[in-house]
């Protein structure tokens, strides 16, 4: 049988095996590579004495526990009407063009994944987006390209 990953064991050890710690554990396991793989989920389940299907069911409930492979940076563009009214569609198109990917896809160099999300709480400063944990507001097509460039240089 396959041995379980040490990173998973460490996360479970840190937070504790009780079920109530499942979300923090999944968040921590996810952090290293921006998504949760099959073996991540089944290892967490085994370490916590939960069923794999259960942990999968929980993880799939939450937007930010990505279950598909993601790039180094995840861009989440707000798709709520207030941001839409301020031109979020243009931002999205500009990003698609600049990164040469569609929503839901990851750039071939693995640096960016482009996604949409529901209201991120910056409606007065739309259009808004998150890159990883960081919010960016009052976006213009120009501004957003600069931001991307910055992240591109950093990673």
């Amino acid at each position: 049988m396959r041995t379980r990953q040490s990173a998973v064991k460490a996360a479970v050890e840190k937070h504790g095996k009780e079920r109530k710690n499942l979300l923090p554990i999944l968040q921590e396991v996810k952090r290293s590579k921006n998504y949760l793989s099959r073996s991540d989920i089944s290892d967490v389940a085994a370490e916590m004495n939960l069923s794999s299907a259960y942990v999968y069911g929980v993880a799939s409930f939450y937007h930010f526990l990505d279950l598909e492979e993601r790039g180094q940076n995840i861009i989440w563009i707000c798709k709520t009407i207030s941001c839409y009214m301020k031109g979020s569609k243009d931002i999205l198109l500009a990003l698609e063009e600049a990164l040469k990917i569609k929503v839901g896809e990851t750039t071939s160099d693995g640096k960016f994944t482009l996604l949409q999300t529901n209201c991120i709480g910056w409606c007065h400063k739309g259009p808004a987006m998150l890159i990883n944990d960081q919010p960016f507001t009052d976006l213009t097509t120009e501004k957003v390209l600069n931001i991307i460039e910055e992240y591109y240089q950093k990673s």
């Binding site: 099959r38 089944s42 939960l50 069923s51 299907a53 259960y54 999968y56 069911g57 409930f61 279950l67």
Partner: peptide
Amino acid sequence: KVNALDVIHKGANMKIATFF
């Protein structure tokens, strides 16, 4: 106590499924 089946996803995509 097998939990082979569970609820996955939510909203319109919510369904009953096995692990992945």
